[in-house]
């Protein structure tokens, strides 16, 4: 805490960078190409979102018109039709349970390992850390076959376990929390120890609240990754009773592939939760993207 107050960027008397002011002025005078580019980018990147909503609200005959119809027609029955044709509620419940459990477990394993790497001295620390980091080199595609056989031997195929446990530790999470604990004030740890606090108590009462930003970033990305995952659950499960939403949507594409209005409606209501999460926590998502650069940032 003390160190923070002394750092120059927090001094209130710090003058703003002198170069910034005139620079900014130049760009304020020439905003038109900037605006144009901004509008073009927004249109290109957001149009597919608009388009799927329009399609989901159009009747079958409008969808099959050429050239295409650009405005929605309020055919809300597409939603009720799509909703009734697959066990979406079950898919949602499965996804929330799988993503939630995975996130919780990743937070626990990352917190413990990150704390050990960041604050403790023990034999083999560097080698073990390098070993953990090396896990990043082994891609999921390569692990599909052996993990399928391992999960089969465990009798975990077609269960929630197959979708949660293999993903319950994250190198990204461990790395991020280790970095965090490395910059943790030493005195705080020593003070807590002198006060007779046990390590677990220290982690729970002091480290967790202070590491909150890092924990939130990890939680968001793990939750999102779990929600969006397809190949793994598609291979490891067969029955809708345990399958997540994206596998359900792919199945729906397979059976209702020509019902474009219903399919679009299904895309909208299955993606809406992710988009809401993203809009609510956009700051943390962007921060997480920065954090992902890890080694690169100077």
């Amino acid at each position: 805490m003390l160190q923070r107050k002394q750092s120059p960027e927090n001094r209130p008397d710090q003058a703003p960078a002198p170069a910034a002011a005139p620079h900014r002025k130049i760009w304020r005078r020439l905003p038109w190409w900037q605006w144009l580019l901004g509008i073009v980018l927004v249109v290109i990147f957001l149009f597919p979102f608009y388009w799927v909503i329009v399609t989901s609200l159009n009747g079958a005959n409008q969808v099959l018109q050429f050239p295409p119809v650009f405005l929605p027609h309020g055919q809300w029955q597409n939603y009720s039709r799509a909703w009734s044709e697959a066990p979406w509620l079950r898919y949602f419940a499965n996804t929330i349970f799988i993503a939630g459990a995975t996130t919780l477990l990743v937070l626990i394993t990352s917190l413990l390992a990150g704390f050990a790497f960041g604050t403790m001295q023990f034999w083999g620390k560097t080698a073990i850390f390098a070993g953990f980091i090396a896990m990043m080199m082994i891609p999921q595609t390569v692990l599909l076959i052996p993990d399928y056989l391992v999960l089969r031997d465990l009798h975990w195929l077609n269960t929630y376990w197959a979708q949660i446990v293999p993903w319950s530790a994250s190198v990204f999470g461990i790395f991020l929390l280790r970095q965090y604990f490395l910059s943790f004030p030493r005195e705080l740890i020593e003070a807590a120890r002198l006060d007779g606090a046990t390590e677990t108590r220290f982690i729970w009462k002091i480290a967790v609240p202070m590491a909150k930003p890092a924990l939130i970033t990890i939680a968001l990305y793990v939750f999102l990754g779990s929600w969006n995952s397809f190949l793994w659950p598609y291979i490891m499960t067969q029955s809708p009773s345990v399958q997540p939403i994206e596998v359900g949507l792919a199945t729906f594409l397979g059976t209702n592939g020509t019902d474009w209005t219903g399919l679009s409606a299904a895309v909208v209501f299955t993606t809406l939760p992710v988009m809401i999460l993203f809009l609510v926590a956009q700051r943390q998502f962007l921060a997480g993207a920065y954090a992902a650069t890890g080694g690169v940032k100077g």
Binding site: V52, N228, W260
Partner: peptide, 22 residues
Amino acid sequence: VRLAVFSPYVTPVVATSIVWIW
């Protein structure tokens, strides 16, 4: 603009690839 450009990255590939198939 930054948010708009980043937003497709968080979407599930199954869902948004269906939009593009269309």
